[in-house]
Write a protein that binds this DNA or RNA. Sequence first.
DNA 1: CTAAGTATAATGTGATCACATATCAACCTT
DNA 2: AAGGTTGATATGTGATCACATTATACTTAG
Lengths: 244, 244
Amino acid sequence: MLQRISSKTVSAREVRPALAALQPVENATLALRVYRGLREMLMAGQVQPGQKLTLRELAGALGTSPMPVREAVQRLAVEGALEALPNRTIRVPVMTKTRFREVRRIRIALEGLAVEEATRHLRAPDFARLEKYNGEFTRGLQRRHPDLSRVFRANKELHFAVYEAAAMPVLLGAIESLWLQIGPVLYLSLRTRADYRGRSPAPDWHSRLLGALRRRDAVSARRALEGDLMSAGEQILAEGELPE
Amino acid sequence: MLQRISSKTVSAREVRPALAALQPVENATLALRVYRGLREMLMAGQVQPGQKLTLRELAGALGTSPMPVREAVQRLAVEGALEALPNRTIRVPVMTKTRFREVRRIRIALEGLAVEEATRHLRAPDFARLEKYNGEFTRGLQRRHPDLSRVFRANKELHFAVYEAAAMPVLLGAIESLWLQIGPVLYLSLRTRADYRGRSPAPDWHSRLLGALRRRDAVSARRALEGDLMSAGEQILAEGELPE
DNA sequence: CTAAGTATAATGTGATCACATATCAACCTT
DNA sequence: AAGGTTGATATGTGATCACATTATACTTAG
């Protein structure tokens, strides 16, 4: 969360139609690209919780000097996606069950607020996109061998499409930070399961959520979101093999 | 905001009573000390919103190289206490009225959750400390020329003593991050007012909160906190001269 | 006189180096 | 054999330097 503020200068493509073909050039700092790379790696669950990381090792793998890695790692540590131990070593945080439950409660508070607020902002054209994401999600789950990374992406896009509609940037940043902490565990714990089919939550919380949003029923929308987070969380707690 | 994880090794003072007089030695990195210094500066409202900062300037003032300042500033930017513009310049964020209202809503959600949870954890001896802070706060306000920094500190200590009792570390970090964003505005806007006496909130929300906590009445405790945040916020919005 | 272009100064970024500290193994002492 | 010591290796931290980019002031064309 909290990338650099996006540039507000008028882009040239709008001024000169002849230059419309120009792609925006990559302008980000090296540290920012390293940050995004590590972030992806974490959210995709490609590193084991508790694993120790060294700056030089990461720098070597990424082909940079340790400097930008330092910034990126430090940033992820502030967000809770990595852990800076007092020994001055860095490791992937271990998500305990109690910690998972705590994050779930915070998520219900914050994402519930976002859903309530989004109820007042969502317009008809928005729902097309929401339905599309929800379709990808449910269809992905019904496949014989679900591509979990696609399913998770659709789930994330659905949730954040709603949250962004709330138009509360600070809140959005806080929610993203929590997803970053939960992401690796979520993916890892579900990836270990052989069969995910038929486990779609008994009440289809996503559809209930979208229905409530269409009716501008903030209370029901919040309740549907709570159901979604609680039931998904119970699956993780039951089968995710979290310590403690 | 996730400092380094505190060391869990058994401190020597508990093992050998003879060494009880030993003070813990300063072990933090330079970057961490710079971070704390800047943090204090921001929370105390010693810099103007919108003011631009440069690394070399800060480093010169602090007597260090730009390096640790870089880390500290980057960290504060992640937490939202500073702003990294796309021009690669750093400035103190400007708090608009709408942004202030958004943060207030998030605070009510998070700090309300903390209060509810604290209701189940607070024990009799805890209340002595809470009453002490509350006493400092109200007495400080009744003075002819209130020392606002003392009043704010007492207020902060009271609130966080409750939040810490909730025993939810992730939640505590999120709340601290919000206070860090609000702090400078809070102090600045109130400092400009000539007279603060007699403005103590009509219903004494702090006392109501403590009373509800004693009775283990989570609902009333949350309501008291909401009243506190809302009424304090209205004062800022009315007299704080925030832009927009 | 206004706006575009240009030169100079200043700033953040990234690389490299030096150093204090932590980690771990082998070794020694009791 | 257990606890302590010592030495070697590796790691994060901070300083210094080089460079691309940005900001600012100045100049110049229209």
